[in-house]
Amino acid sequence: MTDLILQTRDLTREFKGFTAVDKVNLNVHRGDIHALIGPNGAGKTTVFNLLTKYLPPTTGSIYFNGEDITRVESSAIARKGMVRSFQISAVFPKLSVLDNVRIALQQQQGNSFHFWKSARVLEQLNERAEQLLDSVGLLEFARVTTQDLSYGRKRALEIATTLALDPDMLLLDEPTQGMGHEDVDRIAELILSIRHNRTILMVEHNLQVVSRLADRLTVLQRGAILTEGDYATVSADPRVREAYLGVAADQEVAA
């Protein structure tokens, strides 16, 4: 039997009678890069919100490392090792780049309620924070105020911040959305470089990135799973070609 890190059973979410996620049975293998694809409005972000409890599911259940986490709070899920990013960039804009990473590192320090200590105790985290920034190519921006970073760099910072928690599993919601070629390549490289010992579930529109990174993929359409499997199988599926990839995609998949 394959080792599943994340599994959902009949995961469903309705918004006032509209079913945004419909009986989804997702199976993510440990160590994979797993892509979740589908047209706009298919329910991909909603699936992420359900997995990380930003929204409660209407019905269905979620298992992470074999444990039922359907009723666990968002912040506790992060502490269990499943950390998400957001479709819109999620940084602390007025803090320095270094501070952004330090806030994540601080989580495992156990001093986050210590209001009587000087913030100087956090300086012991600088070295680790700088290593993480270096690994995403942001070391030279450590003292810059985050809102002054370019969009691509903000997304790289997000990844560094997420990595600071050393999570078993990362959920990335459209990490390359709205980026130019160069940035897309950089992020794709970055994702490959961090996959060691981790599982990554990512929503991605750019099929070149998907074909390059993903071991398996799930296609979502109108809230329901159309198909799930390895890249070759899924991209060969005529229903996928028709429903999602369309005509133009033929060349893209071939590329």
């Binding site: 007025k94 330090r102 997420t162």
Partner: peptide, 27 residues
Amino acid sequence: RTIHSPFGQILTAIRENEPRAVSLGYN
């Protein structure tokens, strides 16, 4: 001191971007 403490740092993070603070494991 509270403002300039490890706790204050997390307060700042929450004020700046609450969903992100949650996703980093802060209750």
